[in-house]
Amino acid sequence: MGINVPERANYIRMIIDELQRIHSHLLWLGLAGHFIGYNTVWMWAWKAREPILDLFELISGNRQNYAMMKIGGVRRDIKEEDYQVIKKTIKELRPVLDMFKKVVNDDPVIGKRTKGVGILKKEEGISLGVVGPTARASAIDIDVRRDDAYAFYNDISWSVIVQQEGDIYAKIIVRVLEMLEACSIIEQCLAKIAKGPIEVEVRDIPEGEGVGRVEAPRGECFHYVRSDGTNRPVRHKIRAPSFVNVPSNIVTVPGYTISDAALTLAAVDPCYCCTERCAVFTKGGKKVFTGDDLIKLSIEKTEKLKKEYGF
């Protein structure tokens, strides 16, 4: 379209995207904790997530659907007096993330529940075309922020987190370390952001087609748009990351126990609103486990392990 998004808008987009990554990964971490019966992890992760949502409210007026991005820039500016609030929140979040890192590293029960469980092998992941943390935990070194760099991701210093094992533990590590990278990215953006316009006016959409993609918390979010020059697209195809990550369960769930299923399914961080059930086929017929059944089985397994370890 020949639009050059203003510098300031690109920094705001990065800050919002990285805050979103943190809040999404914390939400996931809490749920994973809950699924293995570690409700303290659940409560702590969500407690740490609250100040991030407060930031969204401060910046955009909304905690979840902040609608900041638009064609040509962003809808709202970040006030300069709010920089300090963001910096303070990030500074206070770091020790909490370090604590989670330590908990995940040190707790033998978490290790037992997640190491060597739900393994997605690298070659299987490549065939399935998985993206985001699901790919990176299986040694597939991809990240749209670096590979098809947008905004200023190429101009600041940060690392793509990759783990080799492909198990649930690797997926936890990727997400926890990614949150720390996100903190660093936000801090660097705040150090670099300068005054300026936050959007360019876009009046007419020209005829043509294009592909855009970003690294969402769950991985590559892919958009194809074709326009005939009118105010409605001829086609707008969206492929969200869960669409390619969820099918990896075909290879990650079999071979482990049903009590591991809830956590393995959750490990790709899918949208679970309506797919949280599974059917188990035995010689005697079919038994349907609901999401609650699966979580209950998973929690019972942790309880057994805790007793073994004398907790």
């Binding site: 490549i126 075309g129 991809i142 993609r213 590559e220 892919f222 194809y224 074709r226 001829v234 086609r235 195809k237 492929r239 669409f243 390619v244």
Partner: peptide, 9 residues
């Protein structure tokens, strides 16, 4: 290469 997706029109 990785197949990101297929668009049908």
């Amino acid at each position: 290469m990785r197949l990101s997706t297929i668009t049908g029109i």
